[in-house]
């Protein structure tokens, strides 16, 4: 049995993070909080969501429980919840999830977890560069890049962090120097990524949220967002594009 109470923004952040890649996911209610992860159907990106128990107003789980969830449905529901409003999540008999807020109670049928795609392990990646910046700045850069190209290059030098996009005729460069970045370890790295995915990822973050990027050379990137006032940790791992020779 699961009985948890969270604020609307937390539920929204969790589901929004998942819908960027998948429509169904397994949610694990563990002793130390809620955890979920999934690989997208094209096997290009992975999402990992963690909500520690502290982020819940109430968190009662008898034993570790896994439920299968249609995240699209719950995301739709969560859109109608105000961000400060309290929501109660309840699973009693593993057949449906009750979502209660205000005077509304939704009952959403659960999916048999074994019917959902196998869960990935979290990969061990050696990524030299670490950049911490305001997610709002990153959002701006990706939105701008989206207008002219379908791929972007993330690059770090000693000076700072570059995001570059090249269209047929236009070119966009986004640069943040060491001083502007919140944290930067001055390691060099460079990889190219699909804007299509980044575009989906940035939707989860607000302009005040923190974003930590781990970057390698022609290697996947890890984007860690702290959203909903740091209550939810969302991490995306995105495989790089294959660059034409």
């Amino acid at each position: 049995m699961i009985d948890a109470i969270v604020t609307g923004e937390v539920l929204k952040a969790i589901t929004k993070a998942m819908v960027a890649l998948v429509s169904e996911a397994r949610f694990h209610f563990l002793e130390n909080g809620l955890h979920s992860r999934a690989v997208d159907p094209a096997n290009v990106a992975m999402v990992i969501v963690d909500v520690p128990t502290d982020s819940f107003e109430v968190y009662k789980v008898d034993e570790d429980t896994t439920i299968g969830v249609d995240v699209n449905r719950i995301y739709d529901i969560s859109k109608s919840i105000k961000s400060g409003e309290l929501v109660e999540l309840k699973v009693e008999d593993e057949s449906d999830l009750k979502i209660k807020f205000g005077s509304v109670e939704y009952s959403v049928a659960l999916i048999d977890p074994s019917a959902i795609r196998k869960e990935p392990k979290v990969p061990q990646l050696e990524l030299p560069a670490k950049i911490v910046l305001n997610a709002g700045e990153f959002k701006k850069a990706i939105s701008a890049a989206d207008k002219i190209s379908d791929h972007v290059v993330f690059r770090t030098t000693e000076d700072g962090f570059y995001i570059e996009a090249e269209g047929d005729v236009d070119k966009i460069t986004f640069f943040m120097s060491d001083a502007e970045l919140i944290e930067f370890n001055k390691q060099e790295a460079r990889s190219m990524f699909s804007v299509e995915y980044l575009k989906e990822f940035i939707k989860v973050a607000g302009s005040g949220d923190l974003l930590t990027i781990y970057l390698g050379i022609n290697y996947p990137v890890r984007l860690q967002f702290d959203v909903a006032n740091g209550k939810v940790k969302v991490e995306y791992i995105l495989a790089p594009r294959i660059e034409a020779e």
Binding site: A42, S194, Y219, I237
Partner: peptide
């Protein structure tokens, strides 16, 4: 979306490994 993205990007496998 799946062919377009899947065919032009590297892979993260079902196991969670990066395949280059």
């Amino acid at each position: 979306k799946i062919v377009g993205e899947g065919a032009f990007n590297e892979t993260i496998s079902d196991e969670g490994a990066f395949l280059s």
